[in-house]
Write a protein that binds this DNA or RNA. Structure first.
Lengths: 119, 119
DNA sequence: CCTACATATCAACTTCTGTTGAAACGTAGA
DNA sequence: TCTACGTTTCAACAGAAGTTGATATGTAGG
């Protein structure tokens, strides 16, 4: 991920409605959510939501697929990971003390063991 | 870190000049950089830089201290870590497959060992 | 105290971003 | 094919964000 992409991703996440969309989609998991459901969840008019979804999609943070009449959106896990990696890369330029709290955060997350409470 | 703070941080990072400021400060390390030096590095007029520095400071991503005539800015490592933790928290809501690439990214970074090539 | 230097504040302007309503597109069922 | 439904596109508007130049604040040295 280059600066241009990271910039787009950060800008996308720096907007209330879009951040909520991403959180909703990440929570929803790989199955994703229909545009209408997202609109209801986030509390945004359909017309407006479409604008934000396009922006998030362009930033590589979400993906979409059509299913019948509905369009299903889901989180682009790879894009999110790339963004984290971009932050990590910045943080590690000679200063491990920055990364250590992040490591601790990951350690506290069950993901590191692959044995989550939720799965 | 709550949504409001994360929003401010993401919005701050979603701006070309501010992202460069943060990268420059993280690279510079705890010693930080004088405002004038940052202006020269990033290529922004002093007046304008002051605006961006205030925004970054308000977002909790940088801190400042006065040293003689100069004001020295440095990266707020805690703030950056909190942001990573916020992303991690979102990613881990029942879906470890999102976090795993991030874990891999950290593993590739020398920070995890505390024995960096740079230190 | 006066000057020079570094940075911050202010007001004005410009540009971009987000929102809205109307209309178009694509899909499924009668 | 006609209608209903879900979603997207378009044009217009309102408001926010970034830039700029002039001015003010604070600090060090003569």
């Amino acid at each position: 991920m280059d600066e241009r992409q990271a910039l787009a991703a950060f800008a996308a996440l720096g907007q209330e409605h879009r951040l909520r969309v991403v959180r909703a989609l990440v929570t929803a998991g790989p199955d994703g959510l229909a545009a209408g459901v997202i609109a209801e969840t986030v509390g945004v008019a359909g017309t407006n939501l479409s604008f934000h979804l396009k922006e998030l999609s362009h930033a590589g943070l979400i993906t979409s697929r059509r299913e019948g009449k509905s369009v299903i959106y889901s989180a682009a896990y790879a894009g999110l990971s790339d963004l984290v990696q971009f932050l990590m890369r910045d943080c590690c330029q000679g200063h491990p003390e920055v990364c250590n709290p992040a490591v601790a955060a990951l350690a506290a997350c069950d993901c590191t063991t692959g044995d989550t409470l939720h799965a």
